[in-house]
Amino acid sequence: MDLSYRMRLLIVLISIGVLAGGGLVVKRLLIPDSFGVYGPYRADAIVEAALVPIRHGTNASCFKCHPYEANIHKNGRHHTISCEFCHGTYADHVKNGKKTGTLPVKKGKEITTLCLRCHNTEIKARKEKVIKTVAMPDHLKDQNVKITHNCNQCHHVHAPLKYIIRAKQITGLMEAGS
């Protein structure tokens, strides 16, 4: 081709323009569908975030199949404690209404450790009005029980005062029904 130098430069310039324009067109095509519906982001992401399956149920979901424990738990001082904190998540236990796995039940020393997570007086940040705390092993000594006792040997884990109140009623320290 016999084009002048200036002409060639003009062609180069135009090609750059065309390339950049083409790039912008391609860019438009590649932007995801729901981008920009609410703002500079993919609106579908909100839906995806909402559709993430839950793993924790609530205590109500556990009580449905465990009425015996439910009855004790609901009426005890531990009614605010989540079943799933000690036993594991609902999703690991039930899927589509069918049991898919067995959740662990804490035993022996594990129970004491678990109790002291909340009830240890040594951790000063636990206020009287929020939680009743005990010092170990002083509490065991005060109650005249063996130092090797686990918490659940006196306290029902789901309703910690259940046996205590009953014992007091039997021994007459407390009137029945109070």
Partner: peptide, 18 residues
């Protein structure tokens, strides 16, 4: 070289400006 061998005075002046 944009397929050009134009090294004339005019082209070089243009190059310089660019």
């Amino acid at each position: 070289t944009f397929d050009s061998i134009d090294l004339s005075e005019d082209a070089l002046v243009l190059d310089k400006k660019i």
